[in-house]
Lab assay of single mutants.
Amino acid sequence: EVRVRALYDYEGQEHDELSFKAGDELTKMEDEDEQGWCKGRLDNGQVGLYPANYVEAIQ
């Protein structure tokens, strides 16, 4: 698992997508798939998908 930080706001479009604001931190659980989606977990425990290019790894 990798900690990542959102670069942009994202509003989930489907029930299985996460929503977050730029600057939020979350945990990447799985690497992106061929469509460019990652599985992650918000700090509130919600698990879902998000676009991989909306986040950067925290060093």
Rank of each mutant, 00 (worst) to 15 (best):
G23T: 05
Y50L: 11
H15D: 08
G23I: 00
G12Y: 01
G48K: 02
I58F: 14
W37S: 06
A6M: 03
K28E: 11
D9E: 08
D33G: 09
G45H: 06
R41W: 02
R3K: 13
P51Y: 05
E17P: 04
N44Q: 06
D43W: 13
Q35D: 12
D16T: 13
E34W: 11
D33A: 12
K28S: 08
G40R: 00
V4P: 01
E32A: 14
A6G: 02
Q13M: 05
L42W: 00
L18H: 01
V55F: 03
D33H: 07
V2S: 15
G40D: 01
G23P: 02
G45K: 10
D43I: 08
G12F: 02
T27W: 09
A6Y: 00
N44M: 04
L26E: 01
K21A: 13
K39Q: 08
Y10M: 04
E11Q: 11
R5E: 02
G12S: 14
D9S: 07
A57E: 07
E25T: 12
K28R: 10
D9R: 04
V47Q: 08
Q35L: 12
E14A: 11
D31Y: 07
G48W: 00
W37C: 03
Q13A: 07
V2D: 15
Q59F: 00
W37E: 04
D16K: 09
Q35V: 13
Q59P: 15
D24V: 10
Q46R: 14
E56M: 13
V4G: 04
G48D: 00
K39H: 04
L42Q: 08
Y50C: 08
K28N: 13
L49M: 09
Y10F: 11
G23S: 06
E17L: 08
G48M: 01
V2W: 06
I58C: 09
L26P: 01
V47L: 15
G36E: 15
R3L: 06
D24A: 10
S19G: 06
M29G: 02
A22Q: 07
R3T: 06
L7M: 14
V55Y: 01
Y54T: 11
R41Y: 06
E25G: 07
G40H: 00
G36N: 06
A6V: 02
A6W: 00
E56G: 08
F20R: 01
A57H: 10
C38Y: 04
K21Y: 08
V4D: 05
G48C: 00
L7R: 08
Q59A: 04
A52I: 06
A6S: 03
P51N: 12
A6Q: 00
T27N: 03
L42V: 05
R41P: 01
Y10S: 03
D43N: 14
Q59S: 15
T27V: 14
Y54H: 11
G40S: 00
E30Q: 12
E30K: 06
D33V: 12
L18R: 00
Q46K: 13
D16R: 08
E34D: 08
L18A: 01
D16C: 05
K39F: 12
R41H: 07
Q59N: 15
V4K: 03
G12P: 12
K21F: 02
E34C: 13
D16H: 11
W37T: 08
Q46E: 02
E17D: 05
K21V: 09
A57L: 14
H15W: 08
Q59D: 04
G12Q: 12
A22V: 11
Y54R: 13
Y50D: 01
E25K: 06
E17M: 13
Y54V: 10
A52D: 07
D16Y: 15
E25S: 07
E56I: 05
L18K: 01
L18F: 08
Y54G: 06
E30V: 12
D24N: 09
E56C: 12
S19N: 12
K21L: 11
E14F: 08
E25L: 09
V55N: 00
L7H: 05
D31L: 10
G23A: 10
L49P: 04
E17Y: 13
A6F: 00
L26H: 00
R3D: 02
D16S: 12
Q13T: 04
K28L: 10
G48N: 01
E32R: 15
G40F: 00
R3Y: 02
L26Q: 00
D43A: 10
Q46H: 15
F20C: 01
L26Y: 03
A22H: 07
V55H: 01
R5K: 04
S19H: 03
D9W: 00
M29T: 11
G45E: 04
Y50F: 12
E11A: 13
E32P: 04
T27F: 08
V2G: 12
K28C: 14
A52G: 14
Q35E: 15
G45Q: 03
E1V: 15
G40Y: 00
F20Q: 01
Q35K: 15
F20G: 01
F20A: 01
Q46A: 14
E30R: 15
R5A: 04
P51I: 05
D33Q: 15
E25A: 07
E32L: 13
